[in-house]
């Protein structure tokens, strides 16, 4: 595993990506220390003021400091991306392992269910789920997670199908291991490379999707400081106060760029064939 880090260090793109992500992560962790103002503190006499020395990114339509909202918003955005990938990753990988190892009717059932989920355009399915659960950031995360599960299931399943016929699995069987032992101690670890690659890109996609849901009003609700929501709040004042939308959108772009760069680098190291 140290070898992966050493090879990764040579990839400048990946390092840049890691840097961007780390900056945002630190921003999220130390938000109370970094943000100069309370993100929800309104100041109605200074609406939509442009960036100044007191307000690095200006103020939004309720006079709140945009910079502070961006800093606190990083928490929402990061959490959304990471939680989505965690939920989808755990559930999807588990389903893929079972479907690939046991095959048969159970495997078929699982993969057909994945087909049903994939039959819906993913954003539409997310909208549908939020419509059922009612708008909110948490529900948006659930919705995006559900749409991400099939890609994990499919990938892990195809890995499992190959791995379960390998010699070291037979060797483990000869030693008297149970199916559970083989699945979790041999097949899953050897699938981790694919899972990790899926996850770094998955975080990027999840961030965009949850921000998109927030943008159309189905995700985070006011007055939460969430980057997608801030974007839509700035939409109406694009002519007079574009800085509201610019900064929030730029933050999303940089964070997603970071994950994409790092993910690409990681993929090149873990599995160059996928290039």
């Amino acid at each position: 595993m140290r070898m992966i880090w050493l090879r990764l260090r040579r990839d400048k793109g990946a390092l840049l990506g890691l840097f961007l992500v780390t900056v945002v992560v630190l921003m999220a962790i130390f938000a109370p220390l970094i943000a100069p103002y309370d993100p929800n503190a309104q100041n109605l006499s200074e609406r939509r003021s442009l960036p100044s020395s007191e307000h690095l990114m200006g103020q939004d339509t309720y006079g709140r400091d945009i910079f502070s909202r961006i800093v606190y918003g990083s928490r929402n955005t990061l959490m959304a991306g990471i939680v989505c990938v965690l939920i989808a990753g755990v559930i999807g990988s588990f389903l893929g392992l079972i479907a690939g190892f046991y095959e048969g009717k159970l495997g078929n059932l699982i993969m057909r269910s994945m087909d049903v989920v994939l039959a819906y355009p993913y954003f539409l399915l997310a909208i549908l789920i939020v419509a059922v659960l009612s708008p909110g950031l948490f529900n948006a995360i659930v919705a995006v997670s559900i749409t991400t599960i099939p890609s994990y299931a499919r990938t892990v399943r195809s890995n499992t199908l190959v791995l379960k016929n390998s010699l070291f699995v037979e060797a483990a069987r000869a030693l008297g291991s149970t199916n559970r032992w083989i699945i979790f101690k041999h097949i899953l670890p050897n699938s981790m490379a694919s899972i990790i690659v899926l996850s770094t890109v998955g975080v990027a996609t999840a961030i965009i999707s949850t921000a998109a849901l927030s943008y159309i009003g189905l995700g985070a609700q006011p007055p939460a400081p969430e980057w997608g929501l801030m974007l839509s709040e700035g939409r109406s004042y694009l002519t007079s106060a574009p800085h509201i939308s610019i900064f929030s959108g730029l933050s999303i772009v940089l964070l997603v760029l970071g994950f994409n760069l790092f993910g690409d680098g990681l993929r090149d190291v873990l599995d160059p064939r996928l290039k």
Binding site: A212, G228, R235, L238, I246, V253, V256, L257, N260
Partner: peptide
């Protein structure tokens, strides 16, 4: 790389702007 990292709604807004 940039294009892949840009949310469509932000891109639209910037173009609009």
């Amino acid at each position: 790389l940039f294009a892949v990292s840009m949310p469509a709604f932000w891109l639209g807004l910037m173009l609009l702007l």
